[in-house]
Design a protein around this nucleic acid. Sequence first.
DNA 1: ACGAATTTGTCCGTATGTATG
DNA 2: ACATACATACGGACAAATTCG
Lengths: 241, 241
Amino acid sequence: MIPRQKGVAVWRQIADRIRAQIAAGAYDATGRVPPETALAEEFGVNRHTVRAALSALSQEGIVRAVQGSGTLIERRDRFDFPIGRRTRFTEGIGTQARDIKGVLLSSCEEVVTTDLAERLDLPSGARVLRLDALRTADGRALSRSTTWFPAERFAGIDEAFRKTQSITRALALLGVADYLRAVTEISAIHAEPDDVADLGLAPGAIVLVTKALNTDLAGLPIQYAITRFPADRVQFTIRNA
Amino acid sequence: MIPRQKGVAVWRQIADRIRAQIAAGAYDATGRVPPETALAEEFGVNRHTVRAALSALSQEGIVRAVQGSGTLIERRDRFDFPIGRRTRFTEGIGTQARDIKGVLLSSCEEVVTTDLAERLDLPSGARVLRLDALRTADGRALSRSTTWFPAERFAGIDEAFRKTQSITRALALLGVADYLRAVTEISAIHAEPDDVADLGLAPGAIVLVTKALNTDLAGLPIQYAITRFPADRVQFTIRNA
DNA sequence: ACGAATTTGTCCGTATGTATG
DNA sequence: ACATACATACGGACAAATTCG
């Protein structure tokens, strides 16, 4: 059932599949995972291997085992993040969580790279403000973003973000009442050491990476952002209404 | 450097990172990967472990080691797949590959599930045609899709697809000259055994999953598709022009 | 209240895979 | 190629907690 190639432990592969099953609502009827013996038979492995998988999920807070009773599902949430012409992080996720926080990890001014200069339509040598932020929803890390603004036009955006905890509200403070999403690139990679630390992931976990360009209403680029999401907590929806 | 947590072998984590570096063009200047000793130092592991990683990449055909010379990069391509109101698979990928094939793996008629009935706006108990297809570009698997059409309106779409190797051209044969992408959901998961077999992936690899609804010009749903892409060969771009 | 069945928790041992030097 | 240490996976046996007739 489970392929025995090398490099990825069988218990991890099984953990990934059970997590996906839970997220898909496969066990909603009972609110619990099937017994270890049943899972062992389903995946064609020893019960100990299933136990290793469930132990990992238990560490993640997804399930909780009760001796004699079974393994209960603690949570099965995957946030949906809509992407469209007027994409806003906080608004998009807003109805799905109560307590959304944006923490500014660091900010600095730097000279644009050639790649970034092209995207933001800046002359080479121009200066940009770089903001590193972590967003959490109900206490769980939801994204880790690095954002660049043209330094001249958006001086003070770091303080504005620190106060408002939101890019949208920070931009509003600086006189940008509205802005538009021009392009979004989406890819997926394995978690890197930074992701493991910042987003609280297991190595081998999946990170969804978006690279987004926002413009003002005149079409002038105002912001370029690279954001990393834990794939087991997030999905994207593109609506062409 | 590399975290020694459990479940994923270090050599596989390193292979994933080198593959990502190659895809990002990090080594384009020399056309080769740094020497094994340099990589070993960079990742803080023994040279044997780096050799295991490079051996895996060599198996995938991404690099080729030459004794006395170094480890050459054989290919570094990641297809970009644009998503918009008029999303077309073949057109979108068309300029990036010469030889695009769509193979019909199987087709059958089935009764809609409640979930699918809602998405396609069909009465419960209605019948749908299901097409399973594998798409390849230049001989490499690019996607594995399952597509559902209302059976009544699209009788014969399986034959049309088999002939034309394209959903767009198959729909044209059945009188649908144009159609629109209404919604696209994007998520990422670890490869399942089917993905390993169909897409030629390693277990532990990442699969990008899209769930897409297409409508005709009148807004009537004509097609719902779930497509799985190997994440190391594909990225998505959403343009809001 | 009791016992049987079910289910998770823990211990033993053994073979293979992974990583280092 | 060799040696060493640890992680992974299996198999079996039994204990401990819960459920149910």
